[in-house]
């Protein structure tokens, strides 16, 4: 199906993916599964090296490069070199969720149009929508996803505070909020409410948990202030 030039790969694979997501949630995560899934993403132990495929040939400096069809690239995701086969049109979001083996499904696919913020990741430390980035354009950049922030046994301070302040309802927006606030606090550890709200302005929560999200963020900032 991926060979068809008119095929919309993200949409077509959604049904399949939601089954995979459901099974993983049901099988590997205990009570509070959606929250935990959102906060933690996939476990580090699930990762394995990607199947080998011919890499896009290296070009000498200054020579243009033309990418077409399907090819393998290496992305720096959470400090690991991850091989993944992509096409030019493959977004980072699709590469993470649908093409990496094992899939990295902590980054959520919701609007796919850069409106909702559920797919927020960091690229070189700055928040970005993974649905509006081409994977092949991110070689050499440092990508951080929700899976890179904390592990089930060692949550990041912000993730701890999301739990403590009950900052998730359905949890689907949660990884995006955590990534946006993490980027904000990395830049300004003792950020005030207005700064945090501005940092979250590109994230939407349809359950309306904003006050709890802000409380979790402020608590993390206050802990940073105390040192």
């Amino acid at each position: 199906m991926r060979q068809d030039p008119n095929h919309d790969e993200e949409n077509a694979e959604r049904a399949d993916l939601s089954r995979r997501l459901f099974l993983r949630n049901a099988g590997t995560v205990a009570a509070g599964s959606v929250l935990a899934q959102g906060l933690l993403g996939a476990c580090a132990s699930e990762r394995a090296s990607a199947a080998a495929a011919p890499a896009a040939p290296a070009k000498p400096d200054g020579a243009p490069e033309e990418l077409a069809g399907e090819f393998e690239i290496v992305l720096d995701v959470n400090g690991e070199a991850r091989k993944v086969k992509v096409e030019p049109r493959t977004t980072l979001l699709a590469a993470l969720r649908e093409r990496m083996e094992p899939a990295m499904t902590g980054t959520k696919h919701v609007c796919d149009r850069g409106n909702c913020g559920a797919c927020t990741v960091h690229v070189d430390g700055k928040p970005a929508y993974a649905c509006l980035l081409l994977a092949a354009d991110l070689r050499g950049r440092k990508i951080k996803t929700i899976e890179g922030l904390g592990a089930p046994e060692s949550l990041s301070p912000l993730q701890e505070n999301f739990c403590a302040h009950d900052a998730s309802m359905c949890g689907f927006c949660t990884p995006g909020f955590v990534m946006s606030i993490t980027a904000c606090l990395e830049k300004q550890p003792n950020a005030d409410l207005a700064t945090i709200q501005k940092a979250c302005s590109g994230n939407v929560c349809r359950c309306g948990t904003y006050p709890h999200v802000f409380a979790a963020a402020l608590a993390t900032a206050k802990q940073a202030k105390k040192g």
């Binding site: 095929h7 030019p88 049109r89």
Partner: peptide
């Protein structure tokens, strides 16, 4: 739709 990505330097 599928496309070619040209990366000039």
């Amino acid at each position: 739709k599928s496309f070619t990505l040209f990366n000039p330097k």
